Computed example of a mutant assay.
Amino acid sequence: MSRTVLAALTAAACLGTSAFAQGILTAETAAPNTTPGISIISLSEAAAKAGIADIQVSAGQTLTNSVQNVAEGKSDIAAAPFILPFLMSRGVGPYAGLGAEAGGDLAKNLAVLYTYRISVQGLYAYDSAGISGWDGLEGKTIYNGPPRGAALTNARLLIKTVTGLEEGSGYSGVQVNWGQAVKTIQDGSADAFVLPQAFPDSRVTAALASGNMTVFSMPKDKFDSEAFGKVTNLPGTVAFTMPVADMGYGENVTVVSEDDTFRGPGTVGGDIVNVDMDFDTAKALTAAFIESIETIYHAKSSFMPSAWHGETDIALTDMCGNNPMKYHPGAVAAWEDAGYTLPDCAK
């Protein structure tokens, strides 16, 4: 698939409808085979079917940059892990160059259409690498994400929480853009990988051509620890569990867990817009999403039905609390028209 997808050329091309899109919007997202990538590509299809807009989707982007582009009005829509607007609002991490004042002002420009679970951060390695688990990472080389972004921030934090190790002193980190991810996993550049995953994960299954793999759950004591509780207090991070039997892997992938339950930090985010997007457009896009959850979004990949599209419970959306994001007023209207109840703190 092309890194830049001109989605929804005409609404007539989708299910034979005779309605035509009414405008052009731009959107940025991650790789097209990931949850945020599929989500925005699905939105483009839903928007075309509803005659709302043609959405030009640039996939394979670093979402740190995409979030800033929406805040600055350079792009209309972006996929966003909720940790990024939080960091922007404080002018820290990848937004340290903005400073607190400018970052805070930019973060106020962002609003949510709908949310979903982007991924679950976790550890995996080729069986041939001899990695015993989280306790075997000291001194190893770990591929932990792109050079700049939420995935890298989350991976470093997770490794420190579970092992106490810091990049540089406890292990060596390798950062490579998502477009080179599978190649980097396969070419021996790293001993192990701490990366976002879906279940089953497309990067894992693609890399199996080079050998069998083992996926390691967070140890239960670390998952239940006070330190991990502090991690899940960060916007866009929730405690995630799933039965190993439901993860969707075949015999070439072994999942290591103490009790047949996979545990890890779930990364939550959503598709976001600038607050200046007009009410009717935001409402129409959100309504098109709601109407297309099962017919378009869930149909795109085996992992999409479990990605929490359509959820409004703050335990799953991670809205409110420390999260500076709120739903766009047009999105609020669409959700409520569809019979959903949104928490007041998220409006």
Rank of each mutant, 00 (worst) to 15 (best):
A125E: 10
A206H: 08
M218T: 14
G99D: 09
A100S: 14
D187Y: 04
G37H: 06
T17G: 12
Q56K: 12
K140H: 10
T64G: 11
A333V: 10
F262R: 02
P235Q: 03
D127V: 04
G264R: 14
T115Y: 03
L84I: 08
I83Q: 12
N233G: 14
S2K: 12
W134N: 08
V332R: 06
L208I: 07
V231F: 15
A50W: 08
T163G: 11
V182K: 04
F240E: 12
D246P: 05
P196T: 06
V268H: 07
G130M: 06
G250M: 00
T214D: 01
A307V: 01
A53K: 04
V273F: 10
F20N: 09
A150I: 07
D260W: 03
V120S: 08
C345Q: 11
A53S: 15
P32M: 01
G104Q: 08
S202E: 12
A346T: 15
A27F: 09
N154W: 01
V92K: 14
M213I: 03
D313H: 02
P200W: 10
A111T: 09
E45Y: 14
A245H: 03
D313S: 08
A125R: 05
D318A: 11
G16I: 06
A59D: 01
A31Q: 08
A282W: 09
L106V: 08
V120M: 03
N233C: 02
A198R: 00
V5P: 00
A190K: 07
P243E: 09
K222F: 02
D224G: 04
F228N: 13
L98M: 15
D221A: 14
F20L: 14
M213Y: 02
I41W: 05
E226Y: 06
S225Y: 10
G133K: 12
R117C: 09
R117G: 02
M1T: 13
T35L: 04
N154G: 13
I77D: 04
I272K: 06
K230W: 03
S128V: 04
Y340V: 00
Q68V: 10
A192T: 12
D76M: 06
K49M: 12
K300C: 01
R90F: 03
V67D: 09
A307T: 05
Q186L: 03
A11C: 09
R156W: 07
P305D: 05
L9M: 09
A129G: 03
S292D: 14
F279I: 12
T281M: 13
G179Y: 04
P305M: 01
S39H: 06
T153N: 10
L84A: 11
A47R: 09
A287M: 06
D344Q: 14
G310N: 03
T317I: 02
T4R: 13
P235N: 11
A7Y: 10
T184S: 15
L342F: 07
K347Y: 07
Y340Q: 00
A206Q: 15
A207G: 08
P32K: 01
D318C: 01
I83H: 05
S132G: 14
D278Q: 15
T281Y: 11
Y95R: 07
D337R: 01
R117Q: 15
Q175W: 03
G122N: 11
L208C: 05
